[in-house]
């Protein structure tokens, strides 16, 4: 048969074309996501140093994103190719931010020189 994985008619509740996520798992993931949202708001009232709060906020956001991607978006049971495609997109996002971030201060001297030559005037 061309479609050996296609569900047969006598088993209407089988997994068929893709994995079926149980309700208890979906609800648990939501509860964890809600908890992490409360946590990320609560942690802003603590001073964790210059970049500490930003790092903690991004780590929590990434855990949340990981849960959504893995369970809500079925990547845990999906074809690996979809996970690889997403990982490639995220990799290029990180490369983009890292390259531009590394370069961002390189032109300050030119900006300052320009400022000396053409002082900013308040209208």
């Amino acid at each position: 048969m061309a479609d050996s994985k296609a569900p047969s008619q006598d088993a209407p509740h089988n997994h068929g074309l893709a994995h079926t996520t149980p309700v208890w798992l979906l609800v648990s993931i939501l509860l964890v996501l809600m908890f992490l949202t409360v946590l990320t708001v609560a942690v802003t009232s603590f001073d964790l140093g210059a970049q500490g709060n930003l790092v903690v906020a991004m780590v929590i956001a990434t855990i949340k994103a990981g849960l959504v991607v893995t369970f809500f978006m079925h990547l845990a049971w999906d074809k690996r190719f979809h996970a690889i495609a997403l990982a490639a997109g995220v990799l290029f996002l990180i490369l983009f931010l890292a390259m531009v971030g590394a370069d961002r201060g390189e032109y300050q001297i030119d900006i300052d020189r320009h400022g000396e030559k053409y002082p900013f005037k308040v209208k």
Partner: peptide
């Protein structure tokens, strides 16, 4: 087959989502 149709659509939406990330 329904499997082929589903997989093709799923690949398409994932490529779209990767594009959205970028």
């Amino acid at each position: 087959s329904p499997q082929q149709q589903f997989d093709a659509g799923k690949l398409g939406i994932w490529l779209f989502l990767v594009q959205e990330v970028l």
